[in-house]
Design a protein around this nucleic acid. Structure first.
Lengths: 254, 254
DNA sequence: ATCGAACTGGGTACAGTGTACGAAGAATAT
DNA sequence: ATATTCTTCGTACACTGTACCCAGTTCGAT
């Protein structure tokens, strides 16, 4: 399995770590490492080798120290992931684009998509309770600003940015999975499909699935792959924003 | 990490396993187990103890046999997960509801949601290339039927059911994470929030985040939790189907 | 009836994982 | 000079998937 859990330890410790407000001691030897250095090394490993490779030992190796040394700087792996997340959220450009709410929400979606594509390991970190670090807070503030003052209630504003974020997460997850499975298996989708079809013809009764056969064939021809991620992203985002537009129009009319 | 990868071994072996077309040998001792029994045991473990607990040793224990014995019946853990997936897809009622495409797509979304809630481990199995078993095929056929004959192209039909499935996956994943994190941490969202706010006030400069503060407070009061999953699901599904409706209307007019 | 081939069950081993514990040494306050 | 505090990090534990191998069982052919 590949689901990491975001930190759930002592809130005070976690927040002090995220905001770099940890009291530094006067006595004892000077620390050889820094939280920043550890996070940097962890990001390097996660970005290039994936989240499964990012073990405490691997990060320690990267820094030339022992695995247990890291525990002097972060309470555990979950909290390290929290800081990693908050750090990469700082990479979001948070551009304020001209235009209405739709242009802004569109920008939010695309910026998040870029970030996920750059750091695919983010997709596998559960953030039901987000790490309340400075970058996470700035991100939420920026995203709410996109839908502020267009007639939605506070609850609808929150639901809308949550919806967009959830959509992007899902869409990119599918796209990244597709990309990774190609590397993992050494086969493109088309090759995979061609390797399965003859066996499926032999084993299954494909006459029972007329729609699947017709649509699957068309989609395969059209996109040279069963799943085209760019197309899927654009289509889904378009539908989603259309749906939000309907609500906004509704609120404006009443 | 908690991402299991769906099988990527020999297509012939995988398909024969999924469709139960494996040639049974005549010589040698009669097998003590069956694929069905192993899948049943694995589902029992995954449903009750989660996907992380579902190890080959744990499943073997459940059956009173050695871990390596399972490898006589399934090529590996990935393929076992494939069969588990195909099996639970068989639980989908696949009701043909009266009404237009929207009623049918709505039903598709709700059936999938129920299934995910019943088997949350499904959310952590990567299915970029779905196991082409009988139940997966039947599911795809049923879902395409919901949007057949309403003026969409084959490609749009596929994109639409993919979009709905992706949406439900994301929405339920968020809801299940929220549920699990309560059990995992022993705190409700409100308790978690109340444990963090005083520290956040002390450490962060909350004046920099006026929208977050206002909206966060309102949402907290309204739903007694930062994240209400039922509300989010209904809101998102509504927006999504509105968006599809706009496309359907467009196609009808041209 | 005998015997080899084919098959099954499952023990052991390997290279990993997060992290609790504790030993050994270094820097500072007194 | 010494006590206190803080550092690094080796060892150990309970896990993981599964490769490899051996012993035992059953059947087909002779």
């Amino acid at each position: 399995m590949t689901q990491e859990y975001s930190g759930s330890g002592d809130p005070a410790k976690s927040l002090e770590l995220l905001w770099r407000k940890r009291p530094q001691p006067t006595r004892g030897p000077k620390p050889a490492l820094t939280v920043e250095g550890i996070v940097e090394a962890a990001l390097r490993v996660a970005d290039t080798e994936g989240i499964t490779a990012m073990s405490m030992r691997r990060v320690a190796d990267e820094l030339g120290s022992g695995a247990m040394t890291l525990y002097r700087y972060v309470p555990g792996k979950a909290e390290l992931l929290d800081v990693m997340l908050d750090t990469v959220y700082g990479e979001l450009p948070k551009r304020v684009v001209p235009g209405d709410w739709r242009a802004k929400l569109d920008e939010v979606a695309r910026e998040n998509r870029e970030l996920y594509l750059k750091h695919p390991w983010m997709l596998h970190v559960a953030v039901s309770r987000p790490p309340l670090g400075p970058q996470v807070m700035a991100k939420y503030e920026y995203e709410l600003a996109a839908v502020e003052g267009i007639g939605l209630t506070d609850v609808e504003m929150d639901a809308t940015v949550t919806l967009v974020n959830g959509y992007v997460h899902g869409a990119v997850r599918a796209a990244v999975e597709a990309r990774q499975v190609i590397q993992h298996s050494g086969m493109t989708d088309k090759q995979w499909w061609l390797a399965h079809v003859p066996h499926l013809d032999r084993i299954a009764d494909i006459d029972s699935f007329p729609l699947s056969t017709r649509v699957g064939t068309t989609v395969g021809q059209e996109f040279d792959a069963p799943y085209d991620s760019d197309h899927a992203f654009e289509y889904g985002l378009g539908r989603l924003l259309d749906g939000v537009a309907a609500l906004v129009k509704d609120r404006a009319e009443i």
